[in-house]
Design a protein around this nucleic acid. Structure first.
Lengths: 200, 200
DNA sequence: GAGAAAATGTAGTGACCGCTATATAAATTC
DNA sequence: GAATTTATATAGCGGTCACTACATTTTCTC
């Protein structure tokens, strides 16, 4: 018999698509937060039963980690996108803030940032640690970038940007629309520009 | 028999102090969020068993509502405190932001604002609605105050303050200390001052 | 004291939590 | 085909969730 589709690995083939499952889980976690999405619901939504779930992802936190990786690697990595378009510190930070204002408002039940708010108030230390690590990496990247022009105040300025993003994410999850967030982002961007210009 | 302490109402007297119980519940909800604090833990911490709990508060959300009222009526009502000290819009808003930076950092396991983050990601719509109502009242109060000097842009400016507070609360819950929050608050206050001064 | 009213303690409700033991089905290599 | 490997389905684990039925104790009014 000729194998129609040989995968090279033996054993029964997975009956569901991993990427698709992680994508679905990502949306669910993003929409309602880590704790509010149960394994039973994930299994039902993904079309897989508990044993397959745990064979594939190890645990609920394991799937959350994959969802976070997918999130951070995609278009939700706002600072990376803003940085990719080039320009100086002021331009990139302004683009970062405005992009957040455009991406955070609710769309299909999803609002804010998964990294900033996905595990907020979670009772699971593992889930909190996963998002915390990504936040730390994010603020470090922003800090390093700013340090290229302003090494002295890079830390405080990066913190300013991060806290502003946290505010926008929280506000978006509380229902703020793009207009409101953009108004905030523009004020924050002006503030950043002026802080950088002062005694620079 | 002479009644040693007649309460005027008949029936067995409550064996615990209501205010004390609400205070304890407030701290627990504030520290870990609404969903992460169970009725069993509340009962154990408050020293009351389920039937007394439900007789006194009606439900877990009922106790949360009392905790929120206590919180909003106390020293955590930052804007009210800043406003009470008098001064113009710029002074009051600056005081508000700086007071938040001083109050939000972790102290005894409690960080950030109960109204802003106490029910974040909660699966209970009632708990979310309770905090949402207080947020709405807060931003309305700030807006009305700003409108006294700047009726045109009061809405956007109040939103700016609110979103900045949300950012500080979230950052505090993620571990930001007073130094970091104060740096942010000062930048936000300068931004507010300049926005108000521009074409005012 | 009798009766009513309010709070209490004991015990347990059904539902959901994340997770797993066990057996079976489907794919491989030999 | 036999052995191995992987994924599947069925069923259920102990634990916690918010909440309650029921009987008892305490305190009131009369």
């Amino acid at each position: 018999m000729v194998a129609i589709e040989s995968s090279g690995t033996r054993g029964r083939r997975r009956s569901f698509d991993m990427d698709e499952a992680v994508e679905t889980a990502m949306k669910l976690f993003h929409a309602r937060g880590y704790d509010a999405v149960g394994v039973a619901e994930l299994g039902a939504e993904l079309g897989i039963k508990p044993p397959s779930f745990y064979a594939a992802f190890g645990s609920k936190a394991g799937l959350f980690e994959r969802a976070l990786q997918r999130y951070a690697a995609g278009e939700a990595n706002i600072f990376a996108r803003a940085q990719a378009d080039g320009g100086g510190v002021v331009e990139v930070i302004e683009r970062t803030l405005l992009l957040a204002a455009r991406l955070y408002p609710e769309r299909n039940g999803v609002a804010g940032c998964l990294v900033l708010d996905g595990a907020r108030n979670s009772a699971d230390p593992e889930a909190r640690a996963l998002t915390a690590a990504l936040r730390k990496a994010s603020v470090s990247a922003i800090c390093a970038f700013i340090a290229g022009e302003e090494p002295e105040r890079a830390g405080a300025l990066a913190e300013f940007v991060m806290i502003a993003m946290m505010g926008m994410s929280a506000a978006a999850r509380d229902g703020a629309d793009e207009t409101a967030l953009t108004a905030f982002a523009e004020m924050a961007a002006r503030a950043f520009r002026r802080e950088l210009a002062a005694e620079g």
